[in-house]
Design a protein around this nucleic acid. Structure first.
Lengths: 234, 234
DNA sequence: TAGATTGTTAATCGATTAACAATC
DNA sequence: TAGATTGTTAATCGATTAACAATC
């Protein structure tokens, strides 16, 4: 039952991940101008999954296809946009103006998903007052004002791990309802607030895991091609 | 059956996510010096999940607890380190020296998970030659040499979406077996190579989704407290 | 000892897949 | 019409939870 005993296990994606995947695939496709319609089989091939699941997902999103034709790509794209609220503007602040915070502050791609960064904060007086992505970095104590005044929903945490919990508490007490944590540590929040931990280690662990599976698989393949290798290795 | 019909649905975490969560919780706890041992119930409270699942997870990782006592935190931590290969050095290169690439290049935290960045690349001649995190940015055409020479497993893609596929192809043809894609677009890879899409939109979608659930829940609570509101709204 | 907590078996639940009739 | 593809129902599979005996 241990992980290492089952190297073939296929890592599953969540519904949200699949939807985002479809979304990018189809909007890229539309941009390139090839294919107004798309079949569930085509989408399924993309992620190497069952076409029935794609149809189920699209049904959950609320789009209907046409037998013999497939789905209208544009319709799927806009239904997902709608469902994931990419059309609806969501305001966020960034706390911690290190390199990652700076990269986020000046990242133009957020707009594509309806995210608007409307406040930058840092506790370091040296950073306060600097400009980044068109905004001035403010001292942490100005946080409640900005959050209250602008109806900010999300606080992005790009601070060192030691500071994460403290800063999260501050954000919550200022009225923030969603913490998007990019620090490599957990933060806990009271009931009624949601957190997403964007641990870099998860991605790395998944890749290492998959790499190991690949190694095992290719090892087996090679061994099968030349059986004497098995003896040499054992 | 649609998503919006079931706002209460609790978003599930994958095993890998849970393990990383336990890992951070317990290593933080050990650092702070409070608690050599930990019970499955304590860990479960952290993520608001069933304690049986925690025990199952820990069993899968290969650690055994003691009735009436719990698990030795240090043992759990090192078992997870082992399983997720955080002890084992993994080499990576970063392609695309924009702000995000730069942030990654000089991020010291990767070492904690055994990740060593050993090559930086950019196609822009202006960026080539610059230093970042102790490494010199190289032109893309030097990629095969570095990958082959140093046994690099992972290529981190921090390029604009338009360039992602092309760069991924290049990395694969140079012998890369794992693509860690931070561009907001999908890339496809041949059989035998693995990809992880680190779409920022997934995190945002999850938070928006949770925020909406919270709104609905608090809306219902308030409505229950003062039933006349229901009438006003409808 | 009594009681808390583990590990495990059985039951449930939900998500994925298979099968197939409906339909353009 | 024939055939491809959808939408849906039923079957399977796996993951989570409940129950409880084992044990320190």
């Amino acid at each position: 039952m241990s992980l290492s005993d089952q190297p073939r296990q296929r890592l599953k994606h969540t519904l949200l991940e699949r939807l985002v995947h479809y979304y990018h695939f189809l909007s890229d496709r539309l941009e390139q101008g090839n294919g107004e319609t798309v079949t569930s089989t085509e989408i399924a091939a993309l992620v190497n999954m069952d076409d029935t699941l794609v149809r189920k997902d699209l049904a959950a999103v609320g789009v209907r296809g046409l037998p013999r034709v497939g789905f209208k790509a544009a319709e799927v794209v806009s239904a997902i946009r709608e469902l994931l609220a990419f059309d609806h503007k969501t305001r966020a602040i960034i706390i911690g103006m290190g390199r990652l915070g700076g990269a986020f502050a000046s990242y133009a791609g957020f707009a594509r998903y309806g995210l608007e960064v409307c406040g930058l904060f840092d506790s370091d007086p040296i950073k306060v007052g600097l400009m980044s992505g068109g905004l001035v970095v403010l001292p942490i104590n100005r946080l409640p004002l900005v959050v209250g005044g602008k109806g900010v929903g999300i606080a992005m945490l790009t601070v060192p791990p030691e500071a994460a919990q403290e800063v999260a508490d501050l954000a919550v007490s200022a009225g923030i309802k969603a913490i998007w944590n990019f620090a490599s540590t957990n933060v806990t929040v009271p009931e009624g607030v949601c957190v997403r931990h964007e641990h870099i280690a998860v991605g790395l662990a998944e890749l290492s895991y998959n790499l190991r599976c690949l190694d095992l698989a290719s090892g087996l393949r090679e061994a099968a091609q030349s059986p004497e290798n098995l003896l040499q290795n054992s």
